[in-house]
Measured scan of single mutants.
Amino acid sequence: HMTFVALYDYVASGETDLSFKKGERLQIVNNTEGDWWLAHSLTTGRTGYISSNYVAPSD
């Protein structure tokens, strides 16, 4: 899985979204569905959809 880092804080707007904080590391589970990616937070252990605009590759 690809690992990304959050560029900004994000508060989930629905049950399927994932809230995260700036600097949080996220593993991308599925990024084939446009701008919203299914991600797993390595910080909180939660999984949900994130906006690809809010993250950048961590490598």
Rank of each mutant, 00 (worst) to 15 (best):
H1Y: 14
M2N: 09
M2R: 12
M2E: 09
M2I: 11
T3L: 14
T3R: 05
T3I: 15
T3S: 07
F4I: 04
F4W: 14
V5Y: 08
V5W: 05
A6L: 03
A6K: 00
A6H: 00
A6D: 00
Y8E: 09
D9L: 06
D9E: 06
D9K: 01
Y10C: 10
Y10I: 06
Y10K: 04
V11G: 04
V11K: 08
A12V: 04
S13F: 10
S13H: 11
S13K: 14
S13P: 07
G14Y: 11
G14C: 15
E15W: 07
E15L: 12
T16W: 15
T16R: 14
T16Q: 13
T16H: 14
T16K: 14
D17Y: 15
D17V: 08
D17N: 11
L18T: 02
L18V: 05
S19W: 03
S19Y: 04
S19F: 04
F20A: 01
F20T: 01
F20Y: 07
K21H: 08
K21Q: 11
G23Q: 01
E24P: 00
E24I: 05
E24D: 12
E24N: 01
R25S: 07
R25D: 04
R25Y: 14
L26G: 04
L26D: 01
Q27G: 03
I28H: 01
I28A: 10
V29K: 07
V29G: 04
V29M: 12
V29S: 06
N30C: 13
N30K: 09
N30L: 09
N30V: 10
N31M: 15
T32M: 12
T32Y: 08
T32V: 10
E33G: 12
E33N: 14
G34L: 07
G34I: 07
D35H: 11
D35G: 11
D35N: 11
D35A: 10
W36G: 05
W36R: 15
W36A: 07
W37K: 03
W37E: 00
W37T: 02
W37V: 07
W37I: 07
L38S: 03
L38F: 10
L38W: 09
A39V: 14
A39W: 03
A39G: 04
A39Y: 04
H40M: 15
H40G: 01
H40Q: 13
H40S: 08
H40A: 07
S41I: 02
S41F: 02
L42D: 04
L42T: 06
T43W: 07
T43F: 06
T43K: 07
T44P: 00
T44F: 04
T44N: 04
T44E: 01
T44V: 02
T44A: 03
G45N: 07
G45C: 07
G45D: 05
G45T: 02
G45E: 03
G45H: 08
R46G: 05
R46V: 05
R46Y: 06
T47K: 07
G48L: 02
Y49G: 01
Y49N: 03
I50D: 00
I50M: 03
I50A: 01
S51G: 07
S51K: 15
S51V: 06
S51H: 15
S52F: 07
S52P: 15
S52G: 07
N53H: 14
N53Q: 14
Y54M: 15
Y54D: 07
V55S: 02
A56H: 07
A56Q: 11
A56C: 13
A56L: 11
A56T: 13
P57I: 11
S58Q: 12
S58C: 15
D59H: 13
D59L: 12
D59F: 13
D59Y: 12
D59W: 14
